[in-house]
């Protein structure tokens, strides 16, 4: 990945945070377009528009060697961590040129090079892996941290509490990042829990826990800086980031379950717009510079669609590959077995 798109370990200031948020926003918009053009592999596309500050703010304090898992709404996190948007788009389109050669897709994207241990389509499914990664870091005396990103919906899953307990018990370099976009699919957080102050649960397990407003990316980044530093030193942490999911659960979902007024108010809490306004008002960047930056990003993201659309389909012969390690026999195709059994000789 080119250096300008990765965020190695320092809060590079509001212009950079803005740029990365804009990249996430534009990427997600292009993912929506890919679907409309009929080029995405399926309709299981969960956009993180409105949640850019969580991805960008937290990832601005991750280093090489750190690992993380995400939920199904994880495009922004992976991109903020330095992913190549073209290979991401190709994966979302189910192409051989994607990160997982078209086998994973939007919900199972991963890249070991960037420490992405995998997006997950099971709510809470990726959380315990960071406990294991934390154990590996502790035993190997490596100065790395492992982060689990998940949504508010995962706070209903027992695995989160099993994992938080273990992390706290063993004082692992682990952080739990809850991106609270107010909705688990169609159910609002206050319809799913009696106590929506989620960080209180983590405190009960002995974790260092905070809630921040996702409208302000700098606040997210500052909180992440502090908590991640603590986690590296053996004080596992929990960070809840309050934001609003701008669109439906998936790209195809028009969210009829929530009131228009509520939606309009929620969309006012736009972290990207907020950062942009701040940059202009504080005189850090001129509007024309920001327009130029946005245009450049739009161009970069347009190219991801071309890359995805023009990529090859996976080879049929790859279908039986990677069920087991490369040196192992591949499973026998059903047709081969039937033809063999029914052969007269």
């Amino acid at each position: 990945m080119t250096e300008k798109n990765s965020m190695p370990g320092s809060n590079s200031g509001l212009p950079d945070l803005y740029r990365h948020m804009r990249r996430v926003r534009t990427f997600e918009e292009r993912v929506g377009e890919l679907f409309v053009r009929g080029k995405s592999a399926g309709s299981m596309l969960h956009l993180s528009v409105g949640e850019e500050s969580a991805a960008v703010g937290v990832c601005s304090h991750m280093h090489d060697g750190d690992t993380f898992t995400t939920h199904h709404r994880g495009h922004g996190i992976f991109l903020a961590r330095g992913a190549d948007p073209a290979r991401m788009m190709a994966e979302i389109a189910g192409k051989e040129t994607g990160y997982c050669h078209g086998k994973g897709g939007s919900m199972h994207i991963a890249d070991m090079g960037l420490g992405h241990l995998g997006a997950n389509a099971i709510v809470g499914g990726g959380i315990p892996a960071v406990v294991g990664a934390g154990l590996a870091a502790r035993n190997g005396k490596k100065d790395v941290v492992s982060l689990a990103f998940f949504g508010d919906g995962a706070t209903g899953q027992g695995i989160l509490y099993e994992s938080m307990n273990m992390a706290a018990l063993w004082r692992l370099p682990v952080m739990f990042v809850c991106i609270n976009n107010q909705y688990g699919m169609g159910t609002r957080i206050d319809q799913a829990t009696a106590n929506p102050r989620l960080h209180e649960r983590a405190e009960a397990f002995g974790l260092v826990a905070r809630t921040v407003d996702g409208l302000e990316v700098e606040e997210v980044a500052d909180a992440a800086a502090e908590l991640i530093a603590g986690a590296r030193a053996g004080k596992p942490a929990f960070l809840a980031i309050e934001c609003y999911r701008f669109y439906g659960h998936a790209r195809k979902d028009k969210s009829p379950y929530r009131a228009e007024a509520e939606e309009a108010e929620g969309r006012n809490k736009d972290p990207v717009l907020r950062a942009r306004t701040k940059l202009i008002e504080s005189g850090i960047m001129a509007e024309t510079d920001l327009d130029a930056m946005d245009a450049e990003i739009a161009q970069e993201m347009d190219a991801t669609i071309d890359f995805a659309v023009s990529g090859n389909e996976p080879q049929m012969s790859s279908m039986f590959r990677d069920v087991y390690a490369p040196e192992e026999a591949e499973p026998e195709p059903v047709r081969t077995r039937i033809e063999r059994i029914l052969a007269r000789q």
């Binding site: 315990p128 990664a133 590996a136």
Partner: peptide
Amino acid sequence: EDRVIDTPISEAAIVGAAVGAAMAGLRP
């Protein structure tokens, strides 16, 4: 006790942590 680890009664997280540990280089 760093290599022979007593866990809470949390079967899902035991296996889940083993998954993450294996991915991160341990042989759990």
